[in-house]
Amino acid sequence: MLNYIIRRLVMLIPVLLGVSILTFSMIHMIPGDPARSMLGTKANEKALTELREELGLNDPYLVQYGKFLGDLAQGDLGTSFKTKAPVSDELESRLPATIELTLFAMAIAMVVGVLAGVISAVKQYSWFDNLSMTGALFGVSIPIFWLGLMMIWLFSVKLGWLPASGRLSSGVEIEAITHFYLLDSILTLNWSGFADVFKHLLMPGVALATIPMAIIALMTRSSMLEVMNQDYIRTADAKGLATYLVVFQHALKNAFLPVLTVIGLQFGFLLGGAVLTETIFSWPGIGRFVLQSILARDYPVVQSTILVIAVIFVFVNLITDILYKYIDPRISLD
């Protein structure tokens, strides 16, 4: 197992290097001049030339890329062109904001998705099965940015139940320890803060969870059905164990494997999908931040942030693979 993990980690290096090369070349292919975006209407020729020199934009690409890698090796993510602040500063609260939203959405998707899938499989063809499967079909087809807007219209504009934007109400203080507000509020036993954070998470969380929830429900149902039709489950059934025990001990464990893969893949999807969700719910995370940085050609921010996202994504995949092995030792990891 340890060997396997080490081997996988080593294999990540070329992939991440590839990601960094791809990001670097793509962002430099974007037409336009970062110096000009920084100076805006106040640009004049002299200022532009000087600024380009200062930002190192006149260096050959290889030198620029080398510098980026070199800094990275020393743990330096670079400095934003636009704000002149270190990228790590910019990410300090934004990254946890996005991850918190993503985990929250993942939790909703898993709990609801797996539950709905299991019940649907056990009670196949029941009204619940039909309802949840129809819901799932609707779920994978809905544009989440539209769903988000409609939710805001209903729950914020019309009913006034939930806040339309942000992570926290003004005036609510949460001591930022990890920048995961839900966690921070628990750590500081700040229950009113916890409630406020939760309320803010609810709509963007549900919007973001919609598609993975639907997919997990569909997957869970179909793999449960497949497993339940296999001989050993029938045998267990025949032995007279209580039905729920059969279901949960045998079937669920086996059915969980494909579901796990989906969850791993969907985590990456969520990180990406956060761009739209964050835009709609004014969520101060990295999604919107990267989007704006790409458009402003803020090279250091884009390069480092995308790499950070890719690192998270590949590690989540690695973890799911390891879990895979843990749940079912018969699976060969090669």
Partner: peptide, 20 residues
């Protein structure tokens, strides 16, 4: 190459491509 493309959140890949 496919792995590298898949290590990217695809919407960001699409955004970057449109920017280019």
């Amino acid at each position: 190459i496919i792995d590298i493309m898949m290590a990217f959140p695809s919407i960001l890949l699409a955004i970057a491509m449109v920017a280019i």
